[in-house]
């Protein structure tokens, strides 16, 4: 929990700063939008957190988002497949992708970086090939299905976007799995020291495979929601670079790229920081070409402040302990 305090502080700071600079930031419409985007990126970030905690990496997330989104639109709008079959197909596809990654990494001992980097290229290429590189969309049909991404649950004067509810449910499940089950303990142990974990009787292969399946499954789910939300799917572009957003959110949220640590709450907050920053730049009418510079600078400053504060606190505590 302590680890996520810093990033939470940054989130609060950015929100407060933007709200004071332009009160429109806190109107219900804007908050709903920001929450919806946070949820969409949060879902893929929760997935990659598992892989990062296990000590691995998944670079194929953006392409899985693109492939699943394109395939869903292609099956529904071009091939006239019915909704349950189309959803089942793309979900099965995501699971197969994760399974393939896990098997290649554990049984063939290939490096996760290589496997998922090739995945990044392969799935993007497949998405473009299957759809003939044509932009796809659901038009004004499939309103019911699209409400999964665009719908909202009214609570008083406020509407909670459905993707946010989906993300919360996933975050709770992922948190319980990580913190209160044997699988979660094995995952952390594996991330800290794979050899030690293996010698203490943990079936590390199984844990790694499950973490990659989980990651691709959530990337696929993200792909479904992105496609339904945006409603204009460009096979060559949908999801591009989203793996970096996901990895950044996970690392900001306290996951160590060396593996063995991380918290799901932190990851969700990390995803929120990224989205709030993008939103703030538009709300404050900062020119879009300054976007990356500002996001980079704000996050870096936040991380530096967090680290310095932690060191000062630790030093003071050590001094108190010594004098006591």
């Amino acid at each position: 929990m302590k680890k996520t305090l810093g990033i939470f502080g940054l989130l609060v700071f950015v929100c407060a700063f933007t709200a004071i600079a332009n009160p429109n930031f806190v109107n219900a419409y804007n908050i709903q939008n920001t929450i919806r985007w946070t949820a969409l990126y949060g879902i893929i970030s929760i997935g990659v957190a598992y892989v990062i905690i296990s000590g691995g990496i998944d670079l194929s997330i953006g392409s899985v988002v693109g492939l699943v989104g394109s395939m869903l639109a292609w099956l529904l709008a071009v091939k006239d497949v019915n909704v349950p079959v189309a959803l089942a197909t793309v979900v099965a596809m995501s699971i197969c992708i994760g399974l393939a990654h896990g098997l290649l990494i554990t049984k063939l001992r290939l490096q996760p970086f290589v496997v998922t980097l090739c995945g990044l290229l392969l799935y993007r290429g497949l998405a473009r090939y299957v759809t003939d590189d044509q932009s796809l969309g659901f038009g004004s049909s499939f309103e019911g299905l699209r409400s999964l991404a665009t719908g909202a649950l009214p609570i008083g004067g406020f509407s909670l976007p459905v993707p946010f509810l989906i993300m919360i449910a996933l975050a709770i499940i992922a948190s319980i799995l990580l913190n209160f089950t044997r699988f979660g303990r094995h995952l952390v142990a594996l991330g800290q020291n794979e050899t030690a974990a293996k010698y203490s009787g943990i079936r590390t292969d199984g844990v790694i495979i499950v973490s990659y399946v989980f990651c691709s499954l959530l990337a696929g789910l993200g792909g479904i929601l992105f496609a339904l939300d945006v409603n204009s799917i460009q096979p060559s572009g949908l999801g591009e670079f989203y793996e970096l957003y996901a990895i950044a959110a996970a690392v900001l949220g306290g996951c160590s790229l060396r593996g063995g640590e991380g918290s799901i709450v932190g990851v969700v907050i990390g995803a929120a920081v990224m989205r709030v920053l993008y939103n703030a730049i538009n709300i404050l009418h900062i020119p879009t070409h300054l976007e990356f510079a500002i996001i980079g600078a704000v996050i870096l400053t936040g991380v530096i402040v967090d680290e310095v504060v932690k060191r000062v606190v630790a030093k003071r505590r050590a001094r108190i302990d010594a004098s006591a």
């Binding site: 419409y29 804007n30 939008n33 985007w37 969409l40 992105f226 939300d229 945006v230 204009s232 799917i233 460009q234 572009g237 949908l238 591009e240 993008y278 939103n279 538009n282 709300i283 879009t288």
Partner: peptide, 11 residues
């Protein structure tokens, strides 16, 4: 980025 295009309009 189509998603970004939409969120720009929302913002």
């Amino acid at each position: 980025d189509y998603a970004k295009a939409k969120s720009n309009a929302e913002d």
